[in-house]
Design a protein around this nucleic acid. Sequence first.
RNA 1: GUGGCCAUAGCUCAGUUGGUUAGAGUGCCAGGUUGUGGCCCUGGAGGUCGAGGGUUCAAAUCCCUCUGGCCACCCCA
Length: 425
Amino acid sequence: MPPLGAPRGTHDLLPDTATAWRWLHGVHAEAAELHGYRPIDTPVFEQTELFERGVGTGTDVVDKEMYTFSDRGGRSLTLRPEGTAGVLRAVLQANLLEEARPVRAHYAGPMFRYDRPQKGRYRQFHQVGIECIGERSPELDVEVIEVGWRFLQALGLAGVVLQVNSLGDLDDRMRYREALLAYYRPLADRLCDDCRRRLEINPLRLLDCKRDESLRDAAPVITDSLGESSAAYFAAVRGGLEAAGVAAEHNPRLVRGLDYYAHTAFEYWHSSLQGAQNSLGGGGRYDGLAEAIGFPATPGIGYAFGVERLLLVAGEQGSAPAPQPACDVVVCSLGPAEAQPAAQLARVLRAAGVRTVLDASDRKLDRKLRNADRLGARLCVIVGEDEVREGAAMVRDLGRRTQERHPAAGVVDAVTAALAAGRAA
RNA sequence: GUGGCCAUAGCUCAGUUGGUUAGAGUGCCAGGUUGUGGCCCUGGAGGUCGAGGGUUCAAAUCCCUCUGGCCACCCCA
């Protein structure tokens, strides 16, 4: 039998990538919490209906990308393809709006979509995001977009382009739909197969097509179909972004793939992800979502970023931190007789908060030192026959290649002092 | 889901028109005599050449299927 590998489209987070992974999540939580967002965690699977009704049948995500299964009780469940529906469900189910309004929450976790894997595209991928639920005002749209913007800045990413658009309300979109149909119907025979299908199912998606670009360029734009209040709302959002110093580009052809969006929609693009997976993240207002999943109408807005893509770009730009070494100190015993005293010394160091690895192997000292060096340790504490006899230990600085013998009781102080000195330098 | 490229040691890759025991660099382990590392020298382990089938006297090399990766489409994070 051939060795089993990870399932297609999944990937393991190996120790070397953990540092950057944690860094990114820390930076996101910090940016969100700086704006008053609190952490929330929801199940990775939900009732299938939540996504069917929330995200919407007719979208690719629901129609052909969901991991749906039935459990032993015959319930139909689905591995979440996105985070918003679950977070909104949790907030409404727990009546959090009774205590404070709006509810601001941030989350991070795996999402699942059955799609053909590619670089920056996985079947299990990860998102960090925020949701601002319970109120509708342009200031909140600005706030959410700005948190995302600040987050990207804090990651040190250069070259991010922010695209914004307004999809208007239901009436606006109905009007726009008619305008689009009026434009595209006479051209139907010049459209690609997919687009002819979209024409019937979801005309807004015609704008996504890259094959019929020439037709698209002349197509009507939703901005022209916006009613007075929608247009004013959008203008307020754009004005707020400008005042915040967030450089946003109006892209009238930006439409998001999920059905529940209304009014403000936005995406953060990055040039180095050009073509294929150029979107680092995006979001928008979803005022219709709560009703779609059976709760009282509740406005909301949020965003989500793809962790793998952010890390891809941060890695290219060198802004992600290097892997953290395994430990600060390696304690080496030289023979079986010193194994116990060395182990005891390691315990004392750990109790003092020093990350310590014990090397009680029967390898030669030069190998142990080499290994300590590879582990990234800054110091090596050597416990040999002489040291045990004298109740002492040798503390060696691997960077400076100097060493000093200390009585056992003074080793912790010597080690912590040396580490602190190294950190300051 | 459609089309294309690819798959050789832990890693990065050679392998000539099918031809004997499949190589290099790096990494790993050990040695270069007593308890001192990142260099150097020597030796060793490690591959059913992604998996299965077929053509052939002979397959890493040619053909088919599958699996996986990448690219484009699609979709989006």
